[in-house]
Design a protein around this nucleic acid. Structure first.
Lengths: 233, 233
DNA sequence: CTTACATTCGTTGCATGCAAGAAAACATCA
DNA sequence: TGATGTTTTCTTGCATGCAACGAATGTAAG
C-alpha cells in the first residue's frame, strides 16, 4: 500500500501532450504502478503539472474501466483483478477473438491477413531460436492483428478494455514458460491462420476459441504456481 | 440542435440520490433527450442542483460509453449511432448472447433457467393475444435473463454498455412490427430455451446466434423504412 | 447581394478554495 | 500492558472564478 513515485528519470517529459488518461492508464497496465498502490490526486497533479481537476476526471474513467478502485474520502488505488474476474475476462476474450477470426475469414484477402501470415512466420523463427521474450511480443501482435482484421471498431474497443484489465496478470504470470507451450502455441496459431486463409469462418472461430481456452488453462496453472502464498484476493 | 428542458413535471424529485451518472444516462437511453440535443453543463447543474464539476465528470463517462459527443469549447451533444455502428454492435451482441446461452446450458438447473421458461410461457400468451407492446417488454427481459444466467459479471457489464448504445435505436425502430415477426421470434426463443434445458451448449449457442442475427436483419429493414429521408448520418 | 472582417456571446477547460469524512496518531485511564 | 476516547492529519467532494476558444452576429466594403 505504499506510494511509489514512478519517476523513471527526467521530470516526466516523455510523451508530453499525450492525453492524460492514456498516460495514467499506461502507468497501470505497464506495471509501473503495481496493484495496491495509492494514486493520490495531489501527487499526480504535481507529477503531471496540471491541477487536480483533470486528474480526477481521468481517475474516474479508470475506475469505470476496472483498473482502479476509488474509496471515497480515502483515495484511489490500483486494482488487482480477482481470480474469478480473470476467469470471466478470459471467457469473454475467447468469445471475442472467436468472433474476430470468423469475421476475418469472411473478408477475403485483406492486409490484416497478410500481416498475420508474416507474423506466424516470424513466430516460427523465434521459436526455433528459443527466444521466448520475442515470441511473447509476437503473440501480442498476433492477437491484436486478429481483432483488427475483423474490421469492427466496437469489437476493438471492447477488446482493448478487456485486455487492459488483464495486462498486469499477463505481466506477472509467464504462461509461455510452461514446458512445450511455445511449440503448442505456435501450432495453434498456424491452424488459425490456415483456416482463415481457407475462408472457413467456422473452423477459424473454433480453432481460435480452443487456442484461447488453452491459454486460459495455462494461465491458471502459472498463476497457481506464482500466487501460491497469497490467499484468494 | 435545440436544448430541450426535459422537466417532466415536478422540479425533478423522482430518484433523488440516484447516482448522477445513472440519471443522466437515463435521460439519453430513455429517449427523453433525443440525439443532437445539447447537454449544457450549466443547465444540467441547475436541473440537478449540483455544481458543474460532478456534471462534467458524468458527461465524460457518457462520452466513453459512446452516448454523447463532447466537442471541446462547444458543448456536449447526444449522439446518434451510425448505421455502421449499429451493425457492429449487433455483431457483438450476437457473440455475447451466444456465449451466455452456452454458459447457461452448462450450469444445470439454476434460477435464471426457470425464469427463462416462465418468460417464454408468458410470451406465448401475449403473442396469442396479439399484444405487441407486452411482448416487447418480455423480449427485453428474456435477453437480460439470458445474460444474467451466464453468471459472468464482466459479460454483463459489457453487454449493458452495448445495449445502452442500442437503446435509442431500439426505441425508434419497432422491429417487431414486421409481419410474422412476432411468431417467428417466439419460436426462436422456444428453441433456445429447449437447447438450454437439454444441457446442449453448442445448440444453445447456435440457436441464440441465429436469433440475434434475425433480429439484426429485421432491424436493418425497419431502420431502412424509418430513416428513408436523412442521408447516412 | 455577397463577402470579409470585427465584435459579442455562449460554452467549456482548468485552477483553486474550503468543508467533510476517514484513518492514523496520540493521550488518557484502568 | 491493554483499551478507549480524542485529536490531528491526510484525503477526497464539490463549488466557484476566470481565461480561452468556437460560433454567431453585426458591420462595412466591394
Amino acid at each position: 500500500m505504499q506510494q511509489s513515485s514512478f519517476t523513471t528519470s527526467a521530470p516526466s517529459r516523455s510523451a508530453a501532450d499525450a492525453p492524460l488518461l492514456d498516460r495514467l492508464r499506461g502507468l497501470i497496465v505497464s506495471g509501473v504502478v503495481p496493484p495496491g498502490d495509492l494514486l493520490g490526486e495531489t501527487a499526480l497533479a504535481e507529477e503531471f503539472e496540471v491541477s487536480r481537476t483533470p486528474i480526477r476526471e481521468a481517475l474516474k474513467q479508470l475506475e469505470r474501466e476496472g483498473l482502479v478502485e476509488i474509496r471515497p474520502r480515502v483515495g484511489t488505488f490500483v486494482r488487482k483483478p480477482s481470480q474469478r474476474e480473470i476467469y470471466e475476462l478470459f471467457q469473454l476474450k475467447e468469445s471475442l477473438e472467436g468472433l474476430a477470426a470468423g469475421l476475418l475469414a469472411q473478408r477475403g484477402d485483406v492486409p490484416e491477413l497478410r500481416s498475420l501470415i508474416r507474423n506466424v512466420e516470424s513466430e516460427h523463427d523465434v521459436v526455433r531460436a528459443g527466444d521466448r521474450a520475442a515470441y511473447s511480443t509476437l503473440v501480442h501482435d498476433f492477437h491484436h492483428t486478429l481483432i483488427a482484421g475483423a474490421d469492427n471498431q466496437k469489437l476493438s474497443e471492447h477488446y482493448e478494455l478487456l485486455m487492459n484489465q488483464l495486462a498486469y496478470h499477463r505481466i506477472v504470470t509467464q504462461t509461455l514458460a510452461l514446458p512445450g507451450r511455445l511449440d503448442a502455441s505456435l501450432g495453434e496459431h498456424q491452424q488459425i491462420v490456415l483456416a482463415i486463409q481457407s475462408k472457413d469462418p467456422i473452423t477459424a472461430e473454433l480453432a481460435t476459441r480452443r487456442h484461447v481456452a488453452q491459454t486460459r488453462e495455462n494461465a491458471a496453472l502459472a498463476a497457481f504456481r506464482e500466487d501460491g502464498a497469497s490467499p484468494s484476493n
